[in-house]
């Protein structure tokens, strides 16, 4: 009886399913079919034989084991983790601080101008960002001109390994600070004026209002964004890392994802590269579930 009623409901909504159809086809072809393709991590995949007919790897985890035997594995894992943690600790808080600062500006025009300026770099591609870095930080670029005119010695920023991380993190902040602040700015705007009035009556300073009203009320948003950021922690922007890579900095710039690209597409080791990529995704997914569970436990905020 109930089933029949459900069926009727589904049939009655057929037009809604039609509207959903293109997206459903897309997700099957370009999201779930590739997931099925992950099977080749456990096979000796040959393009001609296809996913089904290619023989299973023996042992099943052969390609994973192979990855951990390479010297590059440790380097790539370490680089990925270090770069993500640096991004998390340095990059994550900055949009929050920027939003708090901007929230102090009561003049609408100035506020809007600063905000507009702050998003600009978000619309630039990784290629353009890295190109700008290479132009400004090259030996004859702006930064080295300033250094030499102050009597210093030119630094090979773009080729030295120790400058890879600062440039990567710094350009990331430069590019995304304004855009990532949007959500905090909106949350700050929704704080009721009553809190501020009460605080003013008590003689609170601006700094105290930020500390005791704004930051606590921003907390739910911050935690939500933190879960999302942590849930993507192993997916550091490989495009940028790949573009910044050169012969001298691979020891710090080789990430799991750039290695997957090279092993998979440049040297056609499909099964091996898929295994490496799968390892990365699984670790990432576990971290996401953990951070979600922790946040749920301590703050009632979660994405699932």
């Amino acid at each position: 009886m109930k089933k029949k009623r459900n069926l009727k409901k589904i049939l009655r909504s057929w037009q809604l399913y039609v509207l959903l159809l293109p997206a459903a086809v897309w997700i099957i072809v370009f999201a779930y079919y590739p997931m099925y393709g992950l099977l080749i991590a456990f096979k000796d995949f040959k393009i001609r034989e296809g996913i089904i007919s290619s023989p299973w790897a023996e042992p099943l985890f052969k390609h994973f084991a192979q990855f951990f035997q390479t010297s590059i594995a440790v380097t790539a894992i370490k680089n990925t983790v270090v770069l993500s943690l640096l991004s998390l600790f340095i990059t994550f808080p900055i949009p929050i601080i920027f939003a708090l600062l901007l929230n102090q500006v009561k003049n609408g025009k100035i506020r809007k101008a600063v905000q507009t300026i702050s998003y600009a770099p978000y619309f630039l591609s990784s290629v353009i960002i890295i190109s700008i870095i290479s132009l400004l930080f090259s030996t004859e670029g702006l930064i080295n001109n300033i250094i030499t005119s102050l009597g210093g010695k030119a630094i090979f920023f773009t080729s030295l390994a120790e400058w890879f991380r600062p440039l990567y993190i710094g350009s990331g902040i430069w590019q995304s600070m304004g855009f990532n602040a949007v959500i905090y700015i909106a949350a700050l705007l929704s704080i009721s004026p009553d809190y501020y009035e009460a605080a003013t009556l008590d003689g609170a300073s601006i700094f105290q209002k930020i500390k005791y009203i704004e930051i606590p009320l921003l907390m739910p948003t911050i935690i939500l964004m933190l879960i999302l950021t942590v849930g993507n922690i192993m997916n550091v922007g490989y495009e940028k890392a790949y573009l910044m890579q050169n012969g001298t900095n691979t020891m710090v710039s080789e990430l799991i994802s750039t290695y997957v690209y090279k092993a998979g597409l440049q040297s056609a080791q499909y099964s091996f590269a898929t295994a490496v990529g799968l390892f990365n995704s699984v670790v990432n997914f576990i971290i996401l579930l953990l951070s979600n569970a922790i946040a749920k436990r301590f703050s009632d905020i979660s994405i699932f």
Partner: peptide
Amino acid sequence: LFTFTMFFNGGLIPMYLT
């Protein structure tokens, strides 16, 4: 089914094969 794909996906090589 949609949201799940935001957090887990096939990755580079399976996408290429697709």
